[in-house]
């Protein structure tokens, strides 16, 4: 698959304030690529460089093989974009606004716009300021998708949507991917990226710390496992296992809580020597992966978003 986005050694400083440093990233056609990080890690900075709102301090950014700066108009013709903090014209109705954006894009056919509005159950004839935050986000999404762009860049897309609309949005992403189009989305909502993305880049303090397939990340995930025994079992029994990162007794006196990294094999075999009443596990999700990457940085970051 051809690369749709290629970011090489991207560094962006705002004066002396760090935005991102030395970011390398390739997004291929037809994939959904998740961009994960805490607030202030540099996600929005990267996205805004992609769309030429910000100019790189150094490094190169190409979209469809075109330079993000020189060929920005040609790029914009082929992308849809949803800002992280959506601001629109308060006094205009959604229909007027979307019509306006469609016009200056040169979009002739508005049927996709109407289909999307219907799908998201959005009333187009109210002034933007009267919408709830969820409805505002829907206007933003319709705006981003209505021109059936080859690449959709979404900054925290589902944050304001209610769960039902989130599902609808995920279904839309699946269809976009199905059609061979590409999605690049940032998020700090981890289950979301886990649900929709094929690959994920994790950014922290302006630097990429990992780029991996979501499946691989899940395999490396820290999983929590609570095991209830028929009789009390001392913690020390499991202390020597290399895949057990943590083990602690639970309040009922007969259960132990485990945190396992990677394979379960070792622990399962050790457990087999005891009479086990119950095992409960929370599924490995990126939340746990995230903790691993941010273990020494749990209080977030101080950079510019």
């Amino acid at each position: 698959m051809p690369a749709v986005i290629e970011i090489k050694n991207l560094t962006k400083f705002y004066g002396t304030v760090r935005g991102v440093e030395d970011v390398d990233l390739t997004v291929y056609q037809g994939e959904i690529f998740g961009f994960l990080g805490p607030n202030g890690a540099g996600k929005s900075t990267t996205l805004r460089v992609l769309v030429d709102m910000l100019r790189p301090t150094s490094g190169s950014v190409t979209v469809f093989g075109l330079d993000s700066r020189v060929d920005s108009i040609a790029i914009h013709r082929r992308i849809g974009y949803l800002p992280g903090e959506l601001a629109m014209y308060d006094r205009m109705t959604a229909r007027q606004m979307l019509g306006f954006f469609a016009s200056i894009r040169g979009l002739e056919d508005l049927s996709e716009m109407h289909k999307l509005a219907e799908r998201f159950d959005l009333d187009l004839d109210r002034p933007f300021r009267s919408y709830s935050s969820g409805n505002r986000q829907k206007v933003g999404l319709v705006q981003a998708f209505m021109a059936t762009p080859e690449l959709v860049i979404l900054d925290e897309p589902s944050s304001a949507l209610d769960p039902l609309m989130q599902q609808e949005f995920y279904a839309l992403l699946d269809e976009v991917k199905e059609a061979g189009r590409t999605v690049f989305l940032s998020s700090h909502v981890l289950p979301e990226v886990e649900r929709v993305a094929d690959r994920v880049a994790i950014i922290r303090r302006g630097r990429l710390v990992a780029t991996e397939h979501v499946a691989d990340l899940k395999a490396r995930a820290r999983r929590s496992l609570d095991v209830t025994f028929e009789e009390a079992v001392p913690v020390e029994q499991f202390a020597g296992l290399s895949s057990v990162a943590e083990v602690h007794p639970l309040p009922d006196g007969r259960s132990l809580g485990f945190v396992v990294v990677g394979t379960m094999d070792e622990l399962v075999k050790a457990l087999a020597q005891h009479r086990v009443r119950n095992v409960s596990s929370s599924n490995g999700n990126l939340e746990d992966v995230f903790l691993e990457f941010y273990a020494d940085d749990s209080d977030g970051d101080t950079g510019v978003a």
Partner: peptide, 17 residues
């Protein structure tokens, strides 16, 4: 098919808007 013709002319450019 709903087209751009349904958008009032003044809203079809930044100048007009």
């Amino acid at each position: 098919m709903p087209t751009i013709a349904t958008v009032i002319p003044v809203l079809r450019s930044i100048f007009g808007k």
